[in-house]
Design a protein around this nucleic acid. Sequence first.
DNA 1: TGCTTACTCTATTAAATTAATAGGATAATA
DNA 2: TATTATCCTATTAATTTAATAGAGTAAGCA
Lengths: 137, 137
Amino acid sequence: MLSKKTKYGLKALAYLASQKEKAPVQISEIAKCENISQKFLESILLSLRKSGFLGSKKGKGGGYYLIKEPNEILMTDVMRVLEGPISMVPCVSLNFYEKCADCRDEATCSVNKLMLMVRDANLEVYRNNTLADLIIS
Amino acid sequence: MLSKKTKYGLKALAYLASQKEKAPVQISEIAKCENISQKFLESILLSLRKSGFLGSKKGKGGGYYLIKEPNEILMTDVMRVLEGPISMVPCVSLNFYEKCADCRDEATCSVNKLMLMVRDANLEVYRNNTLADLIIS
DNA sequence: TGCTTACTCTATTAAATTAATAGGATAATA
DNA sequence: TATTATCCTATTAATTTAATAGAGTAAGCA
């Protein structure tokens, strides 16, 4: 299941991407329009800023804004920041690899084999989509 | 992340599928060979039996065995029983559909659009693989 | 300068889910 | 009828996720 954090983060990014003006947008506006707990959204936007997707401005007229163009923002990068590893098990993860404690041999592990295929299928989707591709109206 | 339940369930199914004999295999044997808590595995195998993948026999010489041939067991079906919905959000689920409480309009929702693609990519993998395809040695 | 605004940061709590354990009941075999 | 191994319910422990609280900091403006 997709975490609320990721869901809210994606919605916020899409909201910012669909702005005509590039002026900063306040957290409160996004929270209201997308039905998100404002405090929770605060922490999500903060982590998106720290990972280089968003810029921010304090004080009156402040808020968050996209640093890059929507078509330059790959979903692989967004998902890794919001949701964590794209792989469903650490033993097939490109960026977060870890050996399974209980597993004898990856080469003959059926879970490993299946999850490798799943990982590649997901990567294919995330790599071929940018934030711009998700904006509809 | 893949739950331990699913991981253990898949390993147990693969273990049974790789048996030469079709004789019942005891829980304790599978638990030992695959490094799984026996009690936890008990409940997993029970649910696999109740969903029609396994048969069981009580008493001496008893245990679990596959009811169908490994190449007849689709991963879509296995995953839905062990892990639940294949979709990452209910609003794109084929078998467990639910409308998002917070979402105005699915047709213009960017999360919906992305997760629809992810669902299809995953389905493609699970539909094209049977238990037999996961057995390596 | 001082007031207002809006992001920043840390800490805590609540809720939900997952994982594991315990122990007795039931059925099959010899 | 003793033994073996699954069946079933209930409970607890551990982990993760979601939400909340409140004080701190920087920017803008009169």
